[in-house]
Design a binder for these strands. Structure first.
Lengths: 193, 193
DNA sequence: ATTCATACTTGACAGTGTCTAGTAGAAAAA
DNA sequence: TTTTTCTACTAGACACTGTCAAGTATGAAT
């Protein structure tokens, strides 16, 4: 096991921060609290992350890397599988996902290595959409369909994690079945203007 | 014009908070800052809202009321129009929308009057989906299609407002055209299992 | 005239991010 | 071997935050 003590403070702080984000949201992440959890002084984390935004950037980079790998692995199975992969990533890495989508906490433009991973994930999604659409579709249509697929996956993920979807729907026997169903609807839509 | 001075402090604080949320995000809303902007002591807002969460609840209630009215007005035009209405609401009321979807800032369960408006909006959406599906669809299918329509609208709205969609897509001539296109794709999907 | 509620103000406290200034120890250079 | 430099921290301070407690001015109701 990769215990905290042996992995160094950086890893230790990151794990604590992700855990807090998963249970209480990213805003509950405090420099002093993660330091306390790691058993070090309140200034120790600054050495590894610069400031609070640095922690969010590190979490984002890690999250986008996992997401990119997950999407890339799914693309041979079609857009429905890709959509499912997106949602399952969000559910399985709630702490990461919540931080990744919060541009106000940390603008990724200032963190090139995180941006690279985010681009990897996006490009995997866009390429898969392009393959499905075929070569004869124009750029506007490709853009719209990319936005569409991303919207379905992203919307379902956020509504399941932080939104009131399940509460409002009332009776949902199997979440995975719901995800599969929605992903199937999304992938079955190809409209030619 | 409904100026600040004449409308009372409550309205004044609310407007300041919404404006801050629209420009810098809900986390930038501070009790002391809104008090400062209204020209009162740092404790004055507490009289009207109880605490910080109370401000978020008030913004949410107002936002859900506007959203509900907007969706209700659109439903006679079909699901595509409803989807567009959702996204346009988010773009036109960025400050409200950002606060409404942040359950960590203020759990709506503690604010019944806000919950009522949220339910209004959800029910309008669900009813419209039910009408489109027809009476012969079972509950699971109705749930899935509701989740699907909501996901598309919500995903597109959040990606446009806070996400990197436009930046990643690169060339989007007309945002409204993109929204219409995505909404059209969403509404053209009816899959029978 | 007295009570009471409304709409505030002032003051204090603990908690926060972060700047500045240290310090113990190991590695590198002289 | 001695000295310097670098890494990974610690300690203290500052301004800022949300919020509790207590006070005050004004108007209405009794």
């Amino acid at each position: 096991m990769s215990s905290a003590k042996t992995d160094g403070l950086r890893r230790q702080v990151l794990d604590a921060a992700v855990a807090i984000a998963a249970t209480s949201g990213p805003d509950a992440i405090s420099m002093r609290e993660v330091a306390r959890l790691a058993g070090v002084s309140h200034q120790a984390p600054y050495h590894h992350f610069g400031d609070r935004a640095g922690i969010f950037a590190a979490i984002s980079e890690e999250g986008f890397r996992i997401l990119a790998e997950s999407i890339e692995a799914s693309t041979t199975l079609g857009t429905a599988a890709m959509c499912e992969a997106y949602v399952h990533f969000a559910l399985a890495h709630k702490g990461h996902f919540r931080v990744m989508m919060r541009n106000d906490l940390c603008s990724l433009e200032n963190y090139p290595s995180a941006l690279i991973q985010a681009d990897r994930a996006f490009n995997a999604l866009r390429n898969e959409v392009a393959v499905i659409l075929g070569e004869d579709s124009n750029e506007d249509e490709a853009n719209a369909h990319t936005a569409y697929m991303w919207s379905v996956a992203h919307g379902l993920a956020t509504l399941l994690i932080d939104g009131p979807l399940l509460k409002k729907l009332g009776s949902v026997a199997d979440i995975n079945e719901l995800i599969r169903n929605v992903a199937h609807k999304a992938s079955s839509t190809i409209v030619h203007s």
